[in-house]
Amino acid sequence: MSTGHDDQGHDHGHHHHHDHDHDHLHPYDPEHHHPHRADQDDSMTYYRLMEEAVRELMIDKGLVTADDIRAEIEAMDARSPANGALVVARAWTDPEFKKRLIASPKEAIAEVGHDIGPMKLIVLENTPEVHNVVVCTLCSCYPRWILGIPPDWYKSRSYRSRVVREPRAVLREFGTEIADNREVRVHDSTADMRYFVLPMRPAGTDGMSEEALAALVHRDSMIGVTEVTV
């Protein structure tokens, strides 16, 4: 414990009356503290302290305002795989857009209304010959500016270590079977580039609107652990 709130006898907002029945199964014990799930914001770790100190200094010095920081967090949280899905749907319906997307992702993505900021993006097109899948074996690099927050499994040691070693087995666990004669290409995001998979358009979607197509495209297909199906 680092906050000491238990030491101060904090009572969690209710009293212990143990002479009647309620949902506590333990006998009266004045030293007893409820088991409770630890708050996630109750320990001032080294990095949390450093973040707070730097943030307060930057605000005091007038470099940023508290509202700037709040707005940035809000913008980060607002990014979602739906942004990427729109890009995929546009690429499926507009071959010229697809060419621009692969040649200069930042400019092409701006055309559909999304700013990928300083991110250096590489678009990986899945084809009948090649299936692409993305990992960051060293940490958890992810194209957040277009897909938002990465899923927990993407950051797990298991995914990171296994997908470079036995990608087909990992894909199978995601329900994705890649044909034996189709190349699996793993992309390890180790430095300054970020990766975005352009999945293949599924059969049976001729004539569908861009909006309807975008609704088919889910996050995992843009990481490359799944394919898009109807």
Binding site: V164, A169, R182, E183, R185, H187, D188
Partner: peptide, 21 residues
Amino acid sequence: QKDLWSDYEGHEDDKIDIEIF
């Protein structure tokens, strides 16, 4: 992949692309 892992199970042409300074 076959160059990186001697016991790699998968397509002969499977690859890894990775950024290196």
